[in-house]
């Protein structure tokens, strides 16, 4: 276990010292500016728009960072042959991959926090009020980003970089679109299609469970059971994907 933490620590350190956190600051600033302009120059309640737009883009940004980090997790280690340096020492492969993902998750969390804070600044500027949904939203964005990170790492274990990114983007889009489409009347009137789409959500990640943007921007309440269920769903999915990743990585030829 302490080897896992060691790997996590150094992964975190190495990423922190690379430029990626800088980019995240710039992204945050750009987002702030953009949110401000959009809210100021559009009709409607600027507070709602600031929340809707800013928060939406910030969760998209964390997903993008997750894909970017995840796809290079292994390929970079192998290209730079660092993985060989590490694995030629007394450490289990499972500790290595788990530690890597842990370190990256921490970076991902910081990224999500920074970008979300930037968009919140504008929201508060327009008179938005603190609500308990805000930390929930942070956690949900993090769940989503983490799931995407694991999905892209999973793909990168079995295909090349380009295909991994593309597959992950497809999973991300479908993960939102399919649960949404279940509300469309056309789907509701077609049982076969409905079951097919429902089946999809049983197997692939249902990312719409983490979407509380509407509730947040309209200051609605969210049912605590929903929060609980979504968290349980995320955690089980994460554990499952993590086990699959460890299993594949243990038996993989590292060439």
């Amino acid at each position: 276990m302490d080897k896992t933490l060691l790997i996590a620590k150094y992964t975190f350190k190495q990423l922190l010292k690379s430029k990626i956190m800088f980019n995240c600051f710039w992204l945050g600033l750009a987002l702030m500016l953009f949110t401000y302009i959009t809210s100021e120059f559009s009709f409607g309640n600027p507070k709602v728009i600031a929340m809707d737009f800013g928060v939406g883009v910030s969760s998209l940004a964390s997903v993008a960072v997750a894909i970017f980090l995840g796809v290079s997790l292994l390929s970079e280690e192998i290209e730079s042959r660092t993985v060989y340096i590490t694995l030629s020492r007394p450490i289990a492969r499972s500790s290595f991959i788990f530690g890597k993902i842990l370190g990256m998750s921490l970076i991902l969390f910081l990224n999500t926090l920074i970008i979300l804070s930037c968009s919140l600044v504008i929201f508060f500027l327009f008179g938005g009020e603190w609500s308990t949904l805000i930390p929930v939203y942070l956690i949900f964005s993090m769940f989503e980003a983490l799931l995407i990170l694991l999905v892209v790492v999973f793909f990168s274990l079995i295909t090349n970089k380009v295909l991994s990114v593309m597959n992950t983007i497809v999973i991300f889009i479908l993960g939102h679109a399919i649960p949404n489409s279940l509300d469309i009347n056309m789907v509701k009137n077609n049982p076969l299609l409905e079951n097919l789409l429902k089946g999809y959500t049983y197997i692939f990640p249902d990312l719409d469970r983490f979407n509380i943007k509407k509730e947040l921007s309209l200051s609605f309440q969210v049912d605590t059971t929903l929060i609980f269920n979504s968290s349980a769903y995320a955690i089980s999915y994460i554990v499952l994907l993590m086990s699959v990743i460890i299993y594949i990585f243990k038996n993989k030829d590292l060439t």
Binding site: K3, L6, Y10, K13, Q14, L15, K17, S18, E79, S80, R81, T82, Y84, I85, T86, R89, P90, I91
Partner: peptide, 23 residues
């Protein structure tokens, strides 16, 4: 390994400490 590159953003000392701790 052949043609090693290692973690670009760690210093030589940090990298060697990492290796030592793994041992």
């Amino acid at each position: 390994p052949e043609r090693p590159y290692y973690y670009e953003y760690l210093t030589g000392r940090e990298f060697l400490r990492y290796c030592g701790k793994l041992q």
